[in-house]
Amino acid sequence: MREGTLRNLAKRLLYALISIVGVAALVFALLHVVPGNPVAALLGDRADPEKVERVSKALGLDQPLYVQFGNYLLGALHGDFGQSYTLGKPVSELMGAAFMNTLWLALAAALVSWVVGITSGLVAALHKNTLLDRLFMGASLLGVSLPVFMVAMLLQYVFAKYLHWLPIAGVADWTGYILPAIALGWSSAGSIARLVRSSVVEVMQQDYIDTARAKGRTNTQVIVLHALRNAMLPVITLMAMQFSGLLSGAFITETIFSINGIGRLSVQAITSRDIPLLQGTTLLCTFVIVMGNLVADLLYSVADPRVRKGA
């Protein structure tokens, strides 16, 4: 790797670190500004003022804010993100388990969306203005417009309830990921298909495609090595962004399919004002998004020599 690239990478990593600490401070401040007492939420309908005071003290919420934030940062540096108020376990342990579930789900959904999206976009582009093109683009429009929960419920009814092929909910084994991955990947596939189609159509009109053909390249070689590679530049950015999005918040899919993932954990933390859990999941999501952007930039430079050369 060149020195310039390394310097650029180090700079980006430093920015990422600043972003993460900034987000931690912001989330901490926001959580103490917005209304909603975490202890009252924790105790629920049984809450009374004496109980709230007693439990607040036990959780250290009676300490000044700067002490609480200082303790949090100190703990976070040692990998201790505190204990969830609502689930009663260390946040790092909860996030670890949830992140693995989300990671598998995101990878499976990404696979679905990339394979389906790129393939159908390519097919539509190569059969521009034919019935096949309209069919694929119509399906992609459905993918973009159908809400995830509707796709999820349809899949549950067809493949789990009637056909009994797959489990309705839970991820006891790999088969549990199939329906949620399709539900989640379906929408992303629609966007990717539309982008791939328009990019390929544009690239196929370029002079270098004619040049490649004139040099005797086969049709497949022209499509894969020249057209698709060049058309993929904007698609890669979209795919990387979508992937980090999948990792940081697939709440609806995780709820419907009962997957103990980061999205579900985050929403649970928000509604119950579970401060340690919310801070942990926010930091994790920030990290994932920042890293996703970084990876997208790196991939971009791999795919486009002009970027690599700093042109």
Binding site: M153, Q156, Y157, A160, K161, H164, P167, I168, A169, G170, T255, I256, F257, S258, N260, R264
Partner: peptide, 18 residues
């Protein structure tokens, strides 16, 4: 004892004998 947050999923699971 399974944690299934979505009520309609629980409904489906009952109908499916799960």
């Amino acid at each position: 004892r399974r944690i299934i947050p979505d009520a309609s999923t629980r409904d489906l699971m009952y109908q499916n004998g799960e």
